[in-house]
C-alpha cells in the first residue's frame, strides 16, 4: 500500500513529496529505543523500559522536545502530537514483543519453538516464498531504503511471485511500513549526539 492509498486517519503526519506521478516517501523520526538512546545519550535498556510506562514516555517526550528545533531540521513535518502518539505506540508494541519473546523462550515451549524454527529454516527450496516474504518485510522495515518509493516494493513483491500468496490483497501493503524511519547518521547523531561505535542495521533496539 502506498501513502496515496491511505485513508486520512491512517496517513502519517506528512512525509510524502509528490514527484510527477510518483510519490517519494520521506523518512520520519521514529522513536525506537536505539534512536532515542542515541539522540538522548541514554542507556538503551533504560529507554526501552521508559517507553513502557506513562511516566517514562513523558520523560522521553520532554527530553526530545528540548531538541525540538533539531527535530524540525531533520523532519520539516515534525509534529509534537505525532511524536507523542509514536512514543505510546512504541511502548505498546514493545510490551507485545516482550510477551511474545517470553512465550517463545519459556521452558515449557522452548522445545516446541525450536522445532518450529528448524522447520521454517528448511522451507528454502520447497517454499521459497516464505523467505521472500520475511526478507522483503525486513528490508522494507530497515531505514532509508533508496528504493522506498511508491511502486518499487510492490513491483519487487510481484516479481518475487508473492501475488499468488497474497491473492487479491496488496502484498507490499500487508507487510511494509508506509514510511521508513530516519537513517542512522554516518557522522554526528541527528541531534549532534555521536552515534554508537557499531550501529546495528535494521535494529530497533532490544527490549
Amino acid at each position: 500500500m502506498s501513502v496515496s492509498q491511505l485513508s486520512p486517519a491512517d496517513a502519517p503526519s506528512g512525509g510524502d513529496r509528490r514527484k510527477g506521478s510518483r510519490v517519494e516517501i520521506l523518512p520520519k523520526f521514529i522513536p525506537t529505543p536505539e534512536r532515542l538512546s542515541q539522540y538522548l545519550e541514554m542507556n538503551i535498556q533504560e529507554v526501552a523500559l521508559s517507553l513502557q510506562s506513562v511516566d517514562g514516555r513523558r520523560l522521553l517526550f520532554n527530553k526530545l522536545m528540548e531538541h525540538e528545533q533539531d527535530l524540525r531540521n531533520i523532519d520539516p513535518a515534525f509534529n509534537p502530537d505525532f511524536l507523542n502518539e509514536q512514543l505510546e505506540l512504541a511502548g505498546e508494541v514493545l510490551r507485545q514483543k516482550d510477551r511474545f519473546l517470553k512465550d517463545v523462550k519459556s521452558p515449557e515451549k522452548k522445545g516446541l519453538f525450536a522445532r518450529a524454527w528448524e522447520k521454517m529454516k528448511s522451507f528454502g527450496k520447497g517454499h521459497p516464498f516464505v523467505s521472500a516474504i520475511l526478507l522483503l518485510a525486513l528490508i522494507a522495515g530497515g531505514t532509508a531504503l533508496a528504493l522506498y518509493a511508491t511502486g518499487n516494493l510492490e513491483l519487487a513483491a510481484t516479481k518475487l511471485g508473492l501475488g499468488k500468496v497474497f491473492g487479491a490483497a496488496d502484498a507490499a501493503g500487508e507487510m511494509m511500513p508506509p514510511v521508513p524511519g530516519s537513517p542512522l547518521p554516518p557522522g554526528a547523531g541527528e541531534l549532534a549526539v555521536p552515534p554508537p561505535a557499531q550501529p546495528i542495521p535494521g535494529a530497533g533496539g532490544p527490549i
Binding site: T32, I139, P177
Partner: peptide, 24 residues
Amino acid sequence: HRSMRLHLVHLHDKKLMSIVERAR
C-alpha cells in the same frame, strides 16, 4: 502497529544485517 513492529526489529544475525545493508 505494523509499521512500528517493523521499525523495532532487532537483529543479531550477520547474514541478515548484511542483506539489509546491501538493500539500502
